[in-house]
């Protein structure tokens, strides 16, 4: 019995290590840190409030340096541009500390946003404050809010980072379409492998 208690205690302590950053935002929650200003690659300042869309808001934590993010980035561009035109607010947030990852410098972000023709803000979260507030842990990681500002979908873009043509479950597009149609999202939480966020450890 004592052993079981010890295991339970250590396990509880151990698994808190994952939440070392913070708890991940729960479905139904509103966007935290929504008034925090972040600089976009176009030089303008944005907040999550300022990018809210009539149909909902798509918040994507991504970056330049993670190979998974790179594999998905053209899909981020096409989905973001398409659904921005359908009434969704869209923002891509780079939460990596640029001091830790040179490839995630602001200048590199500017280049990437142009190359990918992002028709929405690509902003920097240099102190990782927004990522921490969301409890985000990896790039890419999706948080989709409905028209009431409540988290409606959290997770992956789809089920195949390597090959867009081999996608069997287009989780994010399905969620966006469900919101547009006023229907329930059938799969509201998914997972995919991704790079751990290189949090700014000074803040």
């Amino acid at each position: 019995m004592r052993k079981l208690l010890a295991i339970a205690l250590v396990a509880a302590m151990g698994f808190n290590a994952e939440a070392g950053k913070s708890e991940t935002l729960a479905l139904g929650a509103e966007a935290p840190a929504a008034d925090l200003e972040m600089k976009g690659t176009d030089g303008k300042m944005y907040t999550l409030v300022s990018v809210q869309g009539e149909k909902g808001t798509l918040v994507i934590f991504s970056c330049n340096s993670c190979p998974w993010a790179v594999k998905w980035e053209s899909r981020v561009a096409s989905i973001g541009n398409a659904y921005r035109d359908r009434g969704f607010g869209v923002i891509v947030i780079n939460p990596n500390d640029p001091a830790r990852v040179a490839e995630d410098s602001f200048d590199e972000m500017v280049t990437r946003a142009k190359t990918l023709s992002y028709g929405f803000p690509y902003v920097v979260d240099p102190e990782s404050q927004v990522a921490r507030a969301f409890g985000a842990s990896r790039t890419p990681e999706i948080f989709l809010f409905n028209d009431k500002g409540k988290l409606a979908y959290h997770g992956a873009i789809d089920d195949n980072a390597s090959d867009a043509n081999a996608v069997e479950a287009a989780y994010l597009k399905d969620a966006l379409d469900a919101l547009l149609a006023g229907e329930e999202i059938s799969v509201s939480e998914t997972k995919a492998l991704g790079c751990s966020i290189k949090f700014n450890e000074d803040s």
Binding site: E18, T24, R138, A156, K191
Partner: peptide, 20 residues
Amino acid sequence: KLRSDRAFINTLDPNWSGAI
């Protein structure tokens, strides 16, 4: 790793986000 990320992550540890 074999098979889809989602199944891999949830089988290995349902509490794991998938970050490495």
